[in-house]
């Protein structure tokens, strides 16, 4: 490792994203580029239209499913733990625990190491291997939930809330808003783990991602499309849909939908109420405040760069913990959960 006083300068924030000049590639660029390393398949990290794309086989499959012909000129799969050299920069992808295929990009160049962690979480997820901390000189972290009010409760408690509500309101369909990629499949696996064996009904926009997960061997149990069902069939059943669907005419096909949403933002009541959510479920694929802090302490980086989220509070906290930290203020990252 290099001396702590010298900040590595071979990876730079640019308007297109993090750029590595030595290897001539970007990590998670927000505009189409010649060569991209992609940490995971969410659309604010994986965009369409790049030339050469390096990512895990799962992430590449997700990009192909989402973007079709626009998924990139050429795809180079790199399995977890394997290394490759790009212009003298060693690139390795290690699990980030965020969604299927999500990886941290571990970059080594001339004796110093930068880890672009992408999005990550630390609690168990049946759809992907757990985050592996990598010692490094620079740890680039997200801060989506970088405020000490965000402490996600245990997933089991949140799933219990949903199962309890099904018992209390057996005549209502329970419409759970989830993002199509990641959250949807996570919620399904959590339900299955807690013994829920009924078919789970899907909005059309979620079906393709579920198929991709199943192709990679993730067990999701019986899934049925909402399309073609009757109102009576859906009473007391769980229906998953994108969060926006609850306010769209689509939702009227459900019997008296009880609107739930699975998201880390649900921790703040006002946010949940603004979105018309009746049953907030605090289930997130991002590290909460305690996980962010624990990760920093485990990785013990020489320096912390903060990409997107509540940078200010995490900067403050990193300072209190005795770390050198800076906010990168990258553009193009959406508030998602």
């Amino acid at each position: 490792m290099s001396e702590p006083s010298k900040s590595p300068d071979w990876l730079k924030p640019t308007p297109r994203g993090l750029y590595c000049e030595a290897g001539d590639f970007y990590v998670d660029p927000v505009y189409p580029v010649e060569r991209a390393v992609i940490t995971h398949g969410h659309s604010d990290h994986a965009r369409a239209g790049h030339g050469a794309v390096l990512a895990t086989p799962e992430t590449l499959a997700i990009m192909r499913q989402r973007f079709g012909e626009n998924a990139g000129g050429s795809h180079q799969p790199l399995a977890y733990g394997e290394a490759i050299s790009l212009g003298g920069v060693d690139v390795k992808l290690v699990p980030a625990g965020h969604i299927l295929g999500s990886a941290q990009a571990v970059l080594d160049y001339r004796g110093s190491r930068i880890v672009v962690s992408g999005d990550y979480k630390r609690r168990a997820d049946l759809t992907c291997p757990p985050f592996e901390p990598q010692p490094c000189d620079v740890f680039i972290t997200e801060a989506t939930f970088g405020l000490p009010v965000f402490r996600h409760p245990p997933d089991t408690e949140e799933i219990d809330k949903l199962l309890h509500s099904l018992k209390l309101f057996p005549e209502r369909a329970h419409l759970v808003g989830t993002y199509a990629l990641g959250k949807c499949q996570r919620v399904i696996t959590l339900l299955r783990r807690q013994g829920y064996e009924e078919p789970i009904y899907l909005h059309g926009a979620l079906q393709a991602c579920c198929k991709t997960y199943q192709d990679f061997g993730v067990e999701l149990g019986a899934l049925l499309p909402v399309l073609g069902t009757t109102k009576d069939e859906l009473r007391g059943k769980i229906v998953l849909a994108p969060p926006s669907a609850a306010t769209e005419p689509w939702a009227r096909r459900l019997p008296d939908a009880l609107v739930a949403q699975a998201s880390g933002w649900m921790r703040v009541r006002q946010r949940a109420r603004q979105r018309g959510v009746e049953l907030p479920l605090v289930i997130s694929d991002h590290a909460d405040w305690d996980e962010l802090l624990a990760t920093i302490d485990e990785v013990k980086p020489g320096e912390i760069w903060i990409t997107h989220g509540a940078e200010e509070a995490l900067l403050r906290q990193a300072g209190l913990m005795g770390y050198r930290a800076r906010a990168l203020s990258l553009v193009g990252f959406e508030e998602e959960d």
Binding site: L147, P148, V149, R267, V268, Q270, A310, E312, A313
Partner: peptide
């Protein structure tokens, strides 16, 4: 709680009882 972290959080949450409960 660190006062600066509290203020940032209170700003975000908006409700005092809820901020304190969460933080």
């Amino acid at each position: 709680v660190d006062p600066q972290l509290f203020e940032l959080s209170y700003d975000f949450v908006g409700d005092l009882a809820e901020t304190v409960a969460l933080i």
